[in-house]
Write a protein that binds this DNA or RNA. Structure first.
Lengths: 341, 341
DNA sequence: GATCGGACGGCACTCGATTGCAGTGACTAT
DNA sequence: ATAGTCACTGCAATCGAGTGCCGTCCGATC
C-alpha cells in the first residue's frame, strides 16, 4: 500500500548502514554474514518504514521470479478451476505466484503464451494442454525448462506428469455397465490426439474385450473436442446405429451432457432407454437431469501434487522425471440403470 | 524460446550501433527519432537474432508492467471464469497480461494479495470482491491506484464500477412469479454487506410492495455467503414458516441450488409445490433438475467493459468515475410454474 | 607488542532497458 | 568562410536489489 517507492537505500539510511548490508540481512541465506546487532537494527528500520523489497528488481538480478506459469485450454471448462486451486494452495505457501494463460486449444496461441511466460521469467510451467505429440512441450523440455504435465501427458517418457489412470477409469465404467446387464455398450470418445482421449478409448476396448463383448465400428464415435456440441454430434452417430446401444461411456462429462441432448432429441430417456457414464465428475454433475454417473478424478489433488513436483524439479534440475498416476473412482448416480430387456 | 538471455547489447553489436539506439528503434514512440536506414538495420538484426525485450528490466525502469491484477473471491465459483475471459479478451489485444488472485472472501488475505500485486507493479486492478464498506478498496482509491469494481460495488460514489442492475433483476423475478399467480413469495437473500445482496433484497421488497404483496419477517432469510450449504440452511428457515411460501427468489444460483436440496429434504417438489428463481444464469443452469429459471447477467460483457474502462482510467488518471449498469434478463425454464391452489 | 585470523560491512559493479544530455557531422545561410 | 541549425546517435546515469572483493577493526596468540 506504499505510495512512494521505498527502497533499500532508505532502510540503509535509517539504520545507518550500507544498502549492501540491508540486502544481506533481509536475505535469510546471507543473513548469517551480518552481525546480529546490526541485523536487528536493520529489521527494526525496515519494519518501521514498512519496507518490502521490489520483486521486479530482484528478478532482474537473480533471474528468479517466484512466478509459475500455468497453461490451460479454457478457464470456463469447469474441470480447470479445481485443478488451479489445488496448485495455488501449495505455491502460495512457498511464496510463488501463479500466472494462468488460456490457449483455447490453439497451438499458435499456445506458443505465443509460452513466449510471454518465458519473457516474464517464470520459474516453471504446469501444462494442461499437452497433445500426445506436442511440439511446444518437447521444445520446452529440450530447452531444460522445468515442466510438469497435468491431466494430459505426452507420448513416450522423460516428462514429469501427474495424470489420472485413464484406462482404469474406463474399466470401472464398463464393469459397472456390464454388472447392470448391458452388452451393447458404445464409446463416445475424446480426441485421439490427447492422451485422455487415447487412453480412455484403449481402456474401453480392453475392458470390453475382457468381458467378451464385441465392439464394431459403429460403437465408437470420436469427438473433435471436449465440448457439449461435439458430444451431441457424435452421440447422434452412435444412436443412429442398428441395433442401438443400451449404454454410452463418454470421454468426459461435457460429452456426456451432449449425449443427454442427443437422447432428448430422439425422444429417448436416460437411463430407462440408454445409460450414460461421464468422466471427471465435474462440479454440479450431481445436479444434472439425471444426476450423472461418472468416473471421478481428484483434480484438486492432482493439481497439488503437480505443484509440489514442479517445485522439486525447480530446486533440483537433475531430478529424474516421473509420472504419477491417480486412481479414479466410480460415482454411481442416476444416469445408469439395469438394461431393460 | 531462447536459451541464453539475448540482450539489447547483442542486437546493438550486430547492427553496429549503440544499445540506446536499439531501444529507441524498438519503441514505436521514439522510433521517429532514429534514421530510417539505421532503424531498418536494427530491425533486421533483431529479427535475425530472434531478440525480444525483457519486460522485467523494462518494468524496473518505467514502472509500468503491462500487467493487471484481478481480485476474485474464488475461482471455482462458476460465475467468475466467464467474467475473467471477458476481461482477458480485451487486455490481450492491448498487450496486457492478467494476474488473477483469489481471496476466499477473507479480508486479511485480500489485503495480502493486494500487497503482492502492488509489489509486482500491476498497472491497475479489477476487483470482484468488494464489500459495500470496503476498507481495502477505499484505501486503494485514496492512494490513486486505478481500480474498477465489477459485479459488486461499494457504497457511495466516486468509484469506477461495472455492475448488473440488481434491483431490476429482482423486479423481473417477482413479476414473473406474480404473473404465475404467486402471492406468498419468499426471498433467500445474499449477504447484506455485499451490494448484490443488498440491492437484490431492496429490489425484492420494492417489487413486492408494488404489487401490494406483504412481506413479513419470516419471508426473508439472509445467507452468510453465496454457497450451496448456506442456501440449504436459509431455505430450511423459509420453508418452515406457516403458511409456507409458494415461491422463492434466491440471491444467486448457488443459493437456489441450496433451496433445491432443502425442498428435497422436506419431500417437496419444484416447481409443483414451490417455484424457485435464481440469479446469474451460471453455466449449466439449464442442465439442473429442474432446469433453473434465473435472472441472466451478461458476465462476459461486464468483464469486457470493465477491462476497457480500466484501460481508459490507466491512460487518463483524471478520468471521471462512472458506474455502468447492465440490464439483466429473465430466463424462464422449468423451476417455476403457476401456483397450485 | 607485533602478528595473524576472522568477522564485519563498505564499495562498486551487475542485471537489461530507458532516457536526458551532449557531441558529431552535414548542410544552410550570410 | 564562419556561424547557426538540424538530425541523429553515442554516452552515461538510472531503476532497485544482489554480490564478489577488499579494507578495517577487533581480539587472540606467542
Amino acid at each position: 500500500m506504499q505510495q512512494k517507492p521505498l527502497t533499500m537505500r532508505d532502510v540503509a539510511k535509517a539504520a545507518g548502514v550500507h544498502p549492501g548490508t540491508v540486502s544481506r540481512t533481509l536475505n535469510p541465506l546471507t543473513r548469517p554474514l551480518v552481525n546480529e546487532r546490526t541485523a536487528a537494527a536493520v529489521d527494526r528500520a525496515a519494519r518501521r518504514l514498512g519496507y518490502s523489497p521490489n520483486p521486479i528488481a530482484r528478478t532482474l538480478k537473480t533471474r528468479k521470479s517466484f512466478t509459475i506459469g500455468v497453461l490451460i485450454p479454457d478457464l470456463t471448462n469447469p474441470l480447470f478451476p479445481p485443478l488451479i486451486r489445488g496448485m495455488e494452495g501449495v505455491w502460495d505457501g512457498a511464496g510463488y505466484t501463479t500466472l494462468v494463460a488460456s490457449t483455447d486449444g490453439d497451438p499458435h496461441r499456445e506458443r505465443q503464451r509460452v513466449e510471454m511466460l518465458v519473457a516474464r521469467q517464470v520459474d516453471g510451467f504446469v501444462i494442461a494442454t499437452a497433445a500426445r505429440h506436442d511440439e511446444v512441450v518437447t521444445e520446452m523440455m529440450a530447452a531444460g525448462r522445468p515442466v510438469v504435465l497435468v491431466n494430459r501427458t505426452i507420448q513416450g517418457s522423460g516428462a514429469f506428469a501427474v495424470v489420472p489412470d485413464d484406462r482404469k477409469g474406463s474399466t470401472l465404467a464398463v464393469e459397472h455397465l456390464v454388472a447392470l446387464g448391458h452388452r451393447r455398450i458404445a464409446h463416445l470418445a475424446g480426441p485421439r490426439r490427447l492422451s485422455t482421449g487415447q487412453l480412455r478409448w484403449r481402456g474401453f476396448l480392453e475392458a470390453m474385450d475382457e468381458h467378451g463383448l464385441e465392439v464394431n465400428a459403429s460403437m465408437v464415435a470420436t469427438a473433435e473436442a471436449y465440448t457439449e456440441s461435439e458430444g451431441v454430434a457424435s452421440a447422434r452417430r452412435l444412436l443412429g446405429a442398428e441395433p442401438r446401444p443400451t449404454a454410452i461411456v463418454a470421454g468426459n462429462d461435457l460429452l456426456a451432457l451432449g449425449a443427454y441432448t442427443a437422447l432428448a432429441e430422439l425422444g429417448l430417456r436416460c437411463p430407462e432407454d440408454v445409460s450414460v457414464i461421464g468422466f471427471n465428475d465435474m462440479p454440479f454433475a450431481d445436479r444434472f437431469a439425471p444426476p450423472l454417473t461418472t468416473v471421478r478424478i481428484p483434480h484438486a489433488l492432482i493439481g497439488a501434487r503437480a505443484a509440489e513436483l514442479l517445485l522439486e524439479r525447480i530446486e533440483d534440475p537433475a531430478a529424474t522425471p516421473q509420472t504419477l498416476l491417480f486412481e479414479p473412482a466410480l460415482v454411481v448416480r442416476a444416469s445408469t440403470a439395469a438394461v431393460s430387456t
